[in-house]
């Protein structure tokens, strides 16, 4: 179990902001931090991994204290067992794929894990390539594999898939889930993509202006449990079109555009670009704003 109690004054582009967080993450869970840019998500991850020092507060992980401002405990990032996948991947340009992974080996660690990870991420053929020659999805897989070399208990993913195209994103979401289960990790993800969050996470914390304003399971969180539906998908509204007395709403779900009928009253509440949930109960499609 990870307990975070963090206070820190952050100076961002919009002036100063007081981060004041209190969260508990169960061991083995896949947790998402969700919220607008600048809400304090990345700072939270940086404080957990020891890259940023909180002004005051406490961090305990599985009964061990990593940070405690009252008794002056502050473990260095080197001493915390955290695998960190950065938004820009942070692959070492002077090393090839294999060397990037090997660098992360701990003293006296058996290097069979390198082969296992390369194989699992389907990187064997790319192992002698330099990072600059890889595509975004390949770099992401290298970064993730590299974070796993030291067998961390906690995996931190800071918007790992935001720069990738949809097809690659879906593939890597699967991969993330497999990794999370296979290595029995506690995974903390920062993401804006609701589909991704629903698909991956056990629980979600919404952070706004440095505070947790809402938390729950992903399904509770986005209201998916309110409808008992035969099918349901989340997507984005592309077009709202009037046809006689009804409205036709085009929603992008995955790579497909789905057209859903809606009555004028419902349609009036929807705007292009809204994230919506499309569900069906028998013959009656429901479209609902998230």
């Amino acid at each position: 179990m990870i307990q975070l109690n963090l206070h820190k004054t952050l100076s961002s582009t919009g002036g100063k902001m007081a981060l004041d967080l209190d969260l508990t993450i169960e061991k083995g869970h896949f947790v998402t931090l969700f919220g607008e840019s600048g809400a304090g998500k990345t700072s939270t991850l940086r404080m957990l991994s020891g890259l940023l020092k909180p002004d005051s507060g406490m961090i305990t992980v599985g009964g061990t204290t990593w940070f405690d401002s009252r008794s002056n405990i502050d473990l260095k990032p080197q001493q915390r067992k955290v695998g960190y996948v950065f938004q820009d991947y942070a692959l070492f340009p002077n090393m090839n794929v294999r060397q990037n992974l090997e660098y992360a080996l701990q003293k006296n660690q058996d290097n069979s894990i390198i082969r296992e990870l390369l194989e699992f991420a389907e990187l064997e053929e790319l192992q002698h390539r330099k990072p600059e020659t890889l595509s975004g999805g390949q770099k992401q897989r290298v970064a993730l594999s590299r974070a796993l070399v030291q067998r961390p208990e906690i995996l931190i993913l800071d918007e790992p898939l935001s720069a990738l195209d949809l097809k690659m994103r879906i593939k890597l979401q699967e991969y993330l889930l497999q990794v999370h289960k296979k290595y029995k990790l506690t995974t903390i993800l920062v993401s804006h993509d609701i589909g991704e969050i629903v698909k991956l996470s056990d629980s979600v914390f919404e952070i706004q202006n440095g505070r947790v304003i809402k938390n729950g399971t992903a399904a509770d969180f986005f209201g998916l449990n309110k409808t008992s539906a035969k099918f349901r998908f989340s997507g984005e509204i592309l077009k709202i079109q009037r046809e006689d007395v009804i409205y036709i709403i085009s929603v992008l779900i995955g790579n497909d555009i789905i057209r859903v009928v809606s009555d004028p009253k419902e349609a009036a509440l929807l705007r292009i670009g809204d994230q919506v949930l499309v569900a069906s109960k028998a013959f009656n499609p429901i479209i609902q704003k998230l």
Partner: peptide, 22 residues
């Protein structure tokens, strides 16, 4: 980018090793 250094620290590498190897 500062993430290169930070990535190395999170892998348990000292400042000296990071300077020398990365």
């Amino acid at each position: 980018p500062s993430t290169l250094k930070e990535a190395s620290y999170t892998m348990g590498k000292s400042k000296f090793t990071t300077l020398l190897k990365i």
